[in-house]
Design a protein around this nucleic acid. Structure first.
Length: 373
RNA sequence: GCCUUGGUAGCUCAAUGGUAGAGUCCUGACGGUUAAUCAGGCAAUGAGGGUUCAACCCCCUCUCAAGGCA
């Protein structure tokens, strides 16, 4: 049911193009996956997400467990049917929520006790519970329940998280074994910003990595060069025959730097979040559409972009919508930003096919890193 | 002519006898979504007196504006 084939390796960088077969279709990698935390990419319909070129969508165990409840989603016929998205879905395990909603939580070897951010009610997550929920939700790809540490966490605490994550991974794997045909489990590498812990964590995940492996604990507040350094440390150690998924990464520069370092999959809330806050991603850097300079700028958000927003509307119009708090503005920029990241990966794939990804990176890196305001 | 209510940031409005706030406007942040969120910036008490340790606030005069009555 799950298969990953590498169909092209860039001679200049080692970056890959691959075909990842899942029960809901084939994903061509490298791929960016938009995030639909609560079974929706905020403000967009599944049709709009698909039209923007998304092949797979993320959703979230923790949030759907709290509301509407995984049993309800199961009763609805599973997440695909519930949200009317027939392409592949990946659910995050809730591990990141334990990290980011860190007030009033208690982590032990058994699992995590935490209070709901909605009503304060007490809940207990274990690796088994996370998998059970993810099985009920029915995503194609499910994630191991891990312990994510913030940038700046000391070595001892980071090592503890690596060990606990490995222990939890085994429990996730054993619990999931019986149901392994319909869903693939991705283990997650931790290790914070310590090279040896990264290697150690990766090594511990290998026995459980069957058709996919994820890098967690990055993009948690560290500087980008630090993240790149960690990716360099792991680059030669991944299995070849499965996709590598860098969790939480979605800025244009990090995506191309990640692909150069062997990454095949990315997800991030960035494009949709900054869209709702009035920023468009472009090949010339972030464009803050609220800025006064776009008041009477009747060009599209990005010249040459084929997205629904750029085909039909001007910067002046989108700026007007954003500045008057009209929902449509956030929707248009969300569509544009998602489309932008897909266009970026398409161009990256072209460069991989031509064995010139490093050249392409050098051509665009200044532009996409630049904040043009 | 009389009565009433007002005069605070460029504009629209808050506020308190003791450091005058916000929206609009300008700028920035956002990395496995607690986010259509958050942070920062420019900018003001109509004029003159009085009471008070202290007045945007209380009192008087003037002035301007709106409404009402003649």
């Amino acid at each position: 049911m799950f298969k990953y084939e590498v169909i092209k390796v860039c001679k200049q960088t080692g970056a890959r193009i691959g075909r990842f077969t899942t029960p809901h279709g084939v994903i061509e990698t490298p791929v960016f996956m938009p995030v639909g935390t609560k079974a929706t990419v905020k403000s967009l319909s599944p049709e709009e997400v698909a039209e923007a070129g998304s092949q797979i969508m993320l959703s979230n165990t923790y949030h759907l467990y709290l509301r509407p409840g995984h049993e309800l989603v199961k009763a609805a016929g599973g997440l695909h049917k519930f949200m009317n998205w027939n392409r592949p879905i990946l659910t995050d395990s809730g591990g990141f929520q334990v990290f980011s909603l860190s007030t009033l939580r208690k982590v032990t070897d058994d699992g995590v006790q935490f209070n709901s951010f909605i009503d304060g009610s007490k809940h207990f997550f274990t690796p088994e519970k996370s998998i059970e929920i993810q099985q009920a939700l029915g995503a194609d790809i499910i994630m191991a329940f891990d312990e994510c540490t913030a940038a700046g966490t000391d070595r001892a605490r980071s090592e503890e998280a690596v060990i606990r994550t490995a222990d939890w991974l085994k429990r996730c794997y054993d619990f999931h074994k019986e149901n392994g045909e319909k869903q693939i489990l991705f283990p997650i590498i931790q290790g914070n910003m310590y090279a040896d812990l990264r290697r150690e964590s990766l090594k511990r995940t290998l026995p459980y990595a069957k058709c996919g492996i994820a890098i967690g604990g990055l993009s948690v507040g560290e500087e980008k060069p630090v993240m790149y350094e960690m990716l360099d440390v792991m680059k030669e150690l991944y299995p070849e025959n499965m996709p590598r998924y860098l969790m939480g990464v979605g800025s244009a520069d990090c995506i191309i730097e990640g692909i150069i370092r062997g990454i095949d999959m990315f997800d991030c809330v960035l494009p949709t979040r900054i869209a709702r806050n009035g920023t468009a991603m472009t090949f010339s850097g972030d464009l803050c559409i609220r800025n006064a300079g776009y008041k009477d700028d009747f060009r599209p958000v990005e010249e040459g972009c084929d997205c629904y927003c750029c085909r039909n509307y001007s910067r002046a119009y989108v700026r007007h919508l954003i500045n008057t708090d009209e929902i449509f503005g956030g929707r248009l920029l969300s569509i544009h930003n998602i489309r932008f990241l897909h266009r970026l990966t398409e161009k990256i794939k072209e460069a991989i096919r031509a064995d010139r990804l490093l050249d392409y990176r050098n051509e665009i890196i200044d532009g996409i890193s630049e904040k043009r305001g």
